[in-house]
Design a protein around this nucleic acid. Structure first.
Lengths: 297, 297
DNA sequence: GCTCTTCCTCTTATCGATAAAAAACAATAC
DNA sequence: GTATTGTTTTTTATCGATAAGAGGAAGAGC
């Protein structure tokens, strides 16, 4: 009763590589494929079997069949490649951020399970995982209470974020001059400048850049709890702004400029400049979030 | 297939209250009992039914039967009152901290389930919940990796703990003079002094005092993420020192004295004194933990 | 008219079963 | 022998079923 999303995704990915001629013909060995796709050999064999079945390749030699083009409908549809837990996550976040889910609402596992078309155990596991985000509370032998994506939540979140970010930024700036991270920071700076040039039509790309930047700052002196906390931030922001596109371009433009100031401050090794730049960036991120919360409510 | 631990615990508790004459005769109404025991009326009725069945009370009038003493073996044994998740937690922590569980060990859900005598879903849920403690990592479609209760872990933990504690202590000291928390702090100070007098035989009581104190410090300016983090600390320390009693009395005595210094610093409202006292206490707690890790390995 | 209880429904905790995927093992080829 | 493929075993993901527990509606008692 496990889903076969792993297989289907691997299958699609293989077709893709063939189409884009990034895959030799005949195909590499099972072990090589396994490493390339990051799945077990069991799955690779299933993929090869299916490709053979459909006449795309001859399994025995793993060579592509002439005149058998890969067609668009050879691919499995995207829904079928999405693992259950991701499916639940999406549904839940939509339910939470979109619906009229007020703080204090109680969450009914059974109802969600029916609603999302999955077994209750999937919902439970998701809720347990999600509870670390500070938005849910469990009453034993009874349900979960949704505490609301409120201003208070945002303030708690940002208080910690500022503490962690300042700490990491300081440690980053104090690194030895031959740390490889300086190099990485320069690369990231260039990526920022590139994006800034094309901000008009590439503004969506900012969020991945944002992520890379903040993770890089943490890399100088890793702490698992800080990393975990950054996972929360990433997750929350990802979904929140996915359903909240207001002013996205301006927001991202402003943040990009702030990042550049922050990056230059880091490059300068000047601690007080770093603190000012990081502080400024975070407080504007905070204002943005708070503003968007008000407009939702 | 749910366990009936809720019922059994409520039953034992009721007997207890009766024995200690803390329960009127006849017993209060179902609703009153429900509030007192913190369970649903359904459970109360089951308890009353059982008491009647066994001839301890007459259900109809809820009055105790004369000459029917409550006997020791009227109680359900303790094992049967422990909910499954707690049972799993205990077993797991023992397995982890006692056994020769080296960093990098992979965790097999099925094996643990058989070992602990529970279904795999219980184990999964526990592992998911536990993973927030930063000691496990999940490989999708494969198992969990135990990352080890190592020195590195302890250092990560304490770095965050120091940040949070200093922040909370500063905010505590800055509170207005008529905050009710000052009163609470005074009470706690007295409890510390009392314990200090009797440290020779009551040294076990320190850990609950420790908890109360640090939670109180956080109370001045609550932040859900800090609270959550303190849950981690509590949990880890609880189990770690449960299986590591070396020098317990001295350790607790020293910590008690440090607490008193810390408390006085708070009472003085002097920020720099607070920082020094809090820092001193935390660094000695850290040294203690690190030392105990070395002696284990 | 309120509280208490009886009866009933809905939800959670927990189990066991099973398909998919991983991993270990065995056989073969080069 | 080393890499590759074929086969078998083990483990995870996921479902559905069910007893325990929570909680609501409505009658019964004062």
């Amino acid at each position: 009763m496990k889903t076969d999303t792993v297989f289907k995704k691997a299958f699609n990915r293989t077709l893709d590589l063939m189409v884009r001629s990034e895959m030799e013909d005949p195909l590499p060995s099972e072990n090589a494929l396994r490493r390339r796709l990051g799945v077990s050999r069991t799955t690779i064999r299933k993929v090869l079997g299916e490709l053979d079945q459909r006449g795309v390749i001859v399994a025995a030699t793993r060579s592509q069949v002439q005149d058998r083009q890969v067609l668009p409908n050879d691919y499995f549809p995207d829904v079928e490649t999405m693992p259950r837990n991701l499916h639940i996550e999406r549904h839940f976040m939509e339910w939470m951020l979109r619906g009229d889910t007020k703080p204090g609402t109680s969450i009914n596992e059974l109802e969600l399970a029916r609603h999302f078309g999955v077994a209750t155990s999937g919902i439970r596991e998701f809720l347990i995982r999600f509870s670390r985000f500070g938005l849910l509370e469990k009453r034993p032998n009874s349900g979960w209470i949704f505490e609301g994506f409120t201003e208070e939540f945002a303030l708690d979140l940002f208080e910690i974020r500022v503490m962690f970010e300042l700490r990491s930024a300081r440690l980053f700036a104090k690194q030895s001059d031959h740390s490889p991270l300086w190099e990485k920071l320069e690369t990231l700076k260039r990526a920022h400048l590139d994006l800034l040039e094309e901000i008009d039509y590439r503004f969506h790309d900012f969020s991945s850049l944002d992520n890379r930047f903040h993770r890089l700052v943490n890399e100088a002196s890793p702490n698992r709890f800080i990393d975990d906390f950054y996972d929360i931030i990433t997750f929350i922001f990802h979904y929140h702004y996915q359903w909240n596109k207001r002013d996205e371009k301006q927001r991202n433009h402003a943040a990009l400029v702030e990042h550049l100031g922050y990056i230059d401050a880091l490059l300068s090794h000047d601690l007080s400049r770093v603190e000012v730049a990081a502080g400024a960036h975070l407080s504007s991120a905070k204002e943005t979030l708070l503003r968007s919360l008000v407009t939702i409510a």
